[in-house]
Design a protein around this nucleic acid. Sequence first.
DNA 1: GCCTGTCTGTGCATTAGCGCACAGAACTCG
DNA 2: CGAGTTCTGTGCGCTAATGCACAGACAGGC
Lengths: 238, 238
Amino acid sequence: MDVMALNNDNALLERLEAHDRDALSSALEEVRFESGAVLYEPGTNIDYCYFPTGSAICSYFVEMDEGVAVETILIGREGALGGVVSHGNLPAFARSNVLHGGLFQRIALRDLDRLKRDNPAVGHLMNRYSDCVMAQVFQSIACNAVHTIEQRAAKWLVAAVARMGRPSVTMTQEQLASMMGVGRSYASRVLQRFKRDGLLRTRRGGIEVLDRDGLAKRACSCNDHVDAHFERVLGGLY
Amino acid sequence: MDVMALNNDNALLERLEAHDRDALSSALEEVRFESGAVLYEPGTNIDYCYFPTGSAICSYFVEMDEGVAVETILIGREGALGGVVSHGNLPAFARSNVLHGGLFQRIALRDLDRLKRDNPAVGHLMNRYSDCVMAQVFQSIACNAVHTIEQRAAKWLVAAVARMGRPSVTMTQEQLASMMGVGRSYASRVLQRFKRDGLLRTRRGGIEVLDRDGLAKRACSCNDHVDAHFERVLGGLY
DNA sequence: GCCTGTCTGTGCATTAGCGCACAGAACTCG
DNA sequence: CGAGTTCTGTGCGCTAATGCACAGACAGGC
């Protein structure tokens, strides 16, 4: 594993003491994925666990009968995907897509499972992270049940730019809307409101967040509750 | 552990071979909870894993700033609660309530974790069940994003009566609505539509499902997708 | 048996969000 | 540079869902 700039590394792996990380590093492999890459396809076996680094972000999507694929949770360098909750090589339920490309560290699940057993620090870390993933999904279920599209859109944009560490999201409004499971025209109107209020700028195929705090004020507090759980359980998101 | 009628036992535990179940049984303890009992309170430590038996059902709830507590997933005798996904004694994120009382088997997490390590069958079972819980939560996130309240209400009623094995739900319309994160008056109207179509009967403080298949036709297919994952990974819900 | 509190069903006005349609803007490629 | 394609912004009509309000129904206690 390369020694790289701190902000180019994965925050979960960084929580490990040097000697525990060393135990992992021989099994870790660096791979690059571009935006749109698919990490897991529903029904296929999961055999790698991926740790996004730098500004890479991914999401799990659920494909609905209606034809849309709805986003569930967003994962960046604070976390990991695949075999986190269930450790075995099981068929994936959700699809996982790269939303913003970059470098990933990955480890074969066979190796990760062995390490979880043999190295208590690794097991404990993944265990606590699993708990944070549960917090994320639980909060999202409730959020989708009660919050408005404006609140959810603002929440999503804030979470995305926070994880990427850069203010611009590359994505059409169509994609954003379908991820959220809402109509494109209404999503566009919501963005117009944010734009009118100076919170962001839109361009063809992308959104640039200008006022992250202002946007957070328009969002529900779901991000905050999840962040608080990360703080309690792992000592913060990053 | 008592030998009881099959339908009074927990389906997860029943998946274990007799000798593996024996390994658990000395650590299992039978407890009774009435409807409304709280298994976990957010922020408090989780130290038991509970296996509902018979017609007992529970849910995890997320408390929102708005004052309501929204239901995330429903768990009956097909599953277990607490320390399933994260194995350690960590603070709970969600609240867990008993919706329909009954007998539960419980095991101290300390013991369960030891068994997961020492007995591969137990570890593998809990692992596969964790994956099914993820399927349940992912599907719920997407469901809440795109499906109508009518679809979601029908889905919930079908899931609840299936898990309980009896057609009547004891709950006020107020409670049902707030669980779903929707307005009481609209929930009532939805139930009226179902009643008009002969799918159920309402009475003060309860709902009786008359036509489970008819109700399933009004529901989204989210239950089916989750059931299919249980089937693939665990060989079915029950 | 009546009184009290809670629960249900429904009317009404209002907002949130959908879906379609279309025009103009912005990229892409030859 | 021009043609074709995709993306964005917005008008319009409509349905889903909210929130409040209130009357009648039901249950439990005394």
